[in-house]
């Protein structure tokens, strides 16, 4: 049982490491700098551990709202500490909701307005 969990953890860690590596490479290229392998590993490890904190917070938020499913609202609450991040996540959430409405509309009519700026200016 616990061996199984360890293996899953290792794989998740590897997946996180992979994406962190790609993100670092992209950012490095944009600024003509290189990330050492140790740095990439450290960022990956930090992300992995931060995820644990995030998950526990989200669970507590959902529980506080008497839900057993973590919703988008809980994630918005998680992003409260930084104003810019909070606004960014709000916008992203609206973007997602908009996309979902559009994909539902597609089956009946074909009104496509992909401008998210239009959506933002309405507020």
């Amino acid at each position: 049982m616990s061996v199984d969990k360890e293996e899953v953890d290792q794989r998740l860690k590897a997946a996180v490491h992979y994406t962190v590596g790609r993100l670092c490479q992209r950012i490095g290229e944009e600024h003509r700098r290189e990330f050492s392998r140790q740095t990439v590993a450290a960022i990956a490890e930090t992300t992995f551990r931060e995820c644990d904190t995030f998950a526990k917070d989200l669970e507590a938020f959902a529980r506080h709202a008497k839900r057993s499913t973590v919703s988008a609202e809980d994630v918005k609450l998680l992003a409260r500490r930084s104003t810019a991040l909070s606004i960014h996540i709000q916008n992203k959430s609206e973007e997602l909701a908009q996309e979902q409405r559009e994909s539902r509309k597609k089956s009946s009519g074909k009104r496509k307005s992909r401008d998210t700026e239009e959506e933002e200016s309405k507020e």
């Binding site: 969990k5 899953v8 953890d9 998740l12 996180v16 992995f48 995820c51 644990d52 995030f54 998950a55 526990k56 989200l58 669970e59 973590v70």
Partner: peptide
């Protein structure tokens, strides 16, 4: 999976 594995 990452988040679900950390839920209590």
């Amino acid at each position: 999976k990452l988040l679900s594995s950390s839920f209590k």
